[in-house]
Structure formats: C-alpha cells, structure tokens
C-alpha cells in the first residue's frame, strides 16, 4: 500500500518535472533529454493503469523512435548546444494568468459536472459500444492509418521540396538581375 503510494507520487512529480524541464530547459539537448524521460515516466503511468500494450507502444514509438529522431535532427542542424530563450517577461506573465484562468475554469466545470454527467456519459458510451471487443479487430484500421501517414508525409515532402527549389530559383534570378 505504502510502496504503491510512493510509486504513484514519484511518477506524478517526475512526469510534471520532466514536462517543466522541456519548457524551461536552458539548452536544447537538456530539453530533448527531458522529452525522453517524460516519455519513459508516462509509459510507467500507463503500466500503473494496467495498460501494458499502450505502455510498450508509447515506449517504442516515442522513446525509441521519436526521441532519437528528434535528437538526430537537432544534431544534424547543429543546434544541440543552442541556448534556448523564452518570450519576454510580460508575455510570460500574461500567458501564465491565461493558463491559470483556463485551469480554474476547467476545475470548476469538473467539480460541477463530475459526480453526475461525466461518469454517466462515459458509462453510456461504454455500454452502447458492442460488448465483445477484440483488440485484434482494430489492427486493420491501424495499418490503414500508418499507410495514410506515410503517403501524406511523402506528398508533403515533395510539396515542400518543390516550393523550396522554386524560392531558391527566384532568389537566384533576382541575384543575377
């Protein structure tokens, strides 16, 4: 019981600290490391919630793929030791007030609605969905999503390449003239 409690609060604060680390880290590589740790700790939270598949999925997809891709990208553009700046103080203050107000509104809404409608809404959704759901049935649409993403990424890349070469040609023409 006590171990469980300590484990939960450790994950709770570690995740929040990593999220804050991503935003307030002074160097780019620290921000990337915070992202990796954030992915690891959030995977542990899913494990705590018995979502083993989700936890492994996130760790592989985000921890081993996304974080490494991000790290390589930063290294490729030579920005690994870049000092990160924040917006001006006035903007930070205004944004913090906005975020706090948003949070307060959310909590008020939650307190008002939670006991009755949010629970019943979720239960209604669960009851209406078919009873015997097999996770394997969803693998087909998942593969479709994957293919769709690859195709859209390829199209986007071609589109961006074309627009870039077009701009470079324009610049060259301007320089020549």
């Amino acid at each position: 019981m006590v171990t469980n409690l300590i484990y939960f609060y450790f994950l709770f604060f570690a995740t929040i600290c990593c999220a804050l680390g991503i935003i307030f880290a002074p160097m780019m590589y620290l921000s990337a490391i915070s992202l990796f740790l954030f992915v690891c700790f959030s995977s542990l939270i899913y494990l705590y919630l018995n979502s083993v598949y989700l936890s492994v999925f996130q760790f592989i997809l985000c921890g081993l793929f996304l974080s490494v891709y991000l790290f390589l990208l930063i290294k490729k553009i030579g920005r690994i030791n870049l000092r990160l700046g924040l917006a001006p103080a006035s903007k930070i203050i205004v944004s913090s007030i906005f975020v706090l107000l948003f949070g307060a509104l959310f909590v008020l809404y939650f307190l008002q609605e939670f006991d009755s409608s949010l629970y019943s809404f979720f239960n209604a959704v669960v009851e209406k969905s078919f009873d015997a759901v097999n996770f394997k049935h969803y693998l087909y649409p998942l593969s479709l999503v994957g293919i769709f993403v690859l195709v859209s990424a390829a199209v986007l890349r071609v589109f961006l390449d074309n627009s870039l070469t077009h701009e470079q040609q324009k610049e060259n023409e301007e320089n020549c003239s």
Partner: peptide, 9 residues
C-alpha cells in the same frame, strides 16, 4: 499550453 504560449523556439 504554457509551453506553446511562451517558447520562442
């Protein structure tokens, strides 16, 4: 949300 609002990079 705060990160989106305040980060320049």
């Amino acid at each position: 949300l705060l990160g989106v609002l305040i980060s320049r990079n």
